[in-house]
Design a protein around this nucleic acid. Structure first.
Lengths: 169, 169
DNA sequence: CTTGACCTTAAAGTTAGCTTCAAGGTTAGG
DNA sequence: CCTAACCTTGAAGCTAACTTTAAGGTCAAG
């Protein structure tokens, strides 16, 4: 299978597949006499695994150390440890999320509950002081190895699309 | 207050404070005749707010559009909308996390439950096929604007660490 | 008047995970 | 034989949120 076909079957871009090879993540690739890459059908599964693991929160680096070049020879111990650790991360996050959510709700209420005799400025100061006085970690939506971030348009650009200058000024 | 003192009081680095000014996030700063920056005591609170909002999952860009230069003149509507959206993100994540956790647990069990008459290779294939056959989003620990990531050493790099040329050959 | 702790700037570097670009080689169809 | 659709490479660019570097100015103490 040539790279174009593999790209089509996996839904990944050619550049991404070449990139994975470049960083040593995808090793099941040979060359035809003309220099073209050629992949075994297995490669579809490997790439599926990689993207699944990514969605589960593993970095490409972690995936590389876990993924055997031969799909049949896994390092059970390392794999189990990684999976277990990831579960622990999720559990830690599960504990924090309700707190963060409650804290945000409280913040909203706090802002809306402005006493009639208080002006905006004083109210703002009141709310801010309250907030910064709370546990500093109350709004912390991070847990161990895991962290919440903004994704923006990082998912699957289908059309090459119009680029967007972030224009930071 | 000079930048060193502000850095000390907030726990941030000088470079970070200058950076926030550079991207238009921190505007309460004047210059002394000698060119030194000078900050009002208020700046401590503003930086506290910024880091708190960051921990709550807001990007610096979002914070900039929400944070008024004058702490007493907030855009209530925009602020409420942002807070509400962030809560929704958290709730979406709260729904997904148990599923992801369950899926990872199932994966672990699946790997360990290898039938006695099956060799590792076949077992690996069985597990992989099972996994990739599941809902592709089952392991997806992302939700809307929110995403799980590995933090590694992104918090306070103590040692610069050895660089690694991506070129693997 | 020198030393050291501050302060200044612009520019480049860092990390992750890619994409885009520039400049070309290959191949199948008409 | 030409053209379009593939394929190749290395290098550079992108985003976010900073840090680091280089080259220098300021200031208080001794």
């Amino acid at each position: 299978m040539k790279i174009g076909e593999l790209a089509q079957q996996t839904g990944l871009t050619r550049s991404r597949i070449r990139f994975y090879e470049q960083i040593g993540l995808l090793k099941t690739v040979e060359r035809r006499p003309n220099g073209y890459r050629t992949y075994p059908p297995q490669a579809v599964m490997i790439l599926g695994l990689i993207t699944t693991a990514q969605r589960a929160g593993f970095t490409l680096d972690e995936i590389r150390t876990l993924l055997p070049s031969d799909l049949t020879h896994w390092d059970h111990a390392a794999l189990m440890e990684a999976l277990t650790r990831k579960i622990a991360d999720i559990e830690a996050l599960q504990l924090r999320l309700p707190q963060s959510r409650a804290h945000l709700l409280r913040l909203i209420e706090d802002i809306q509950e402005r006493p009639d005799d208080m002006d905006c400025a004083a109210n703002a100061h009141r709310v801010l002081t309250n907030m910064l006085a709370e546990h500093p970690e109350a709004l912390d939506v991070t847990a161990g190895d895991i962290r919440l971030l903004d994704t923006k348009d990082r998912r699957q650009s289908v059309s090459p699309g119009h680029r967007k200058k972030t224009a930071s000024r």
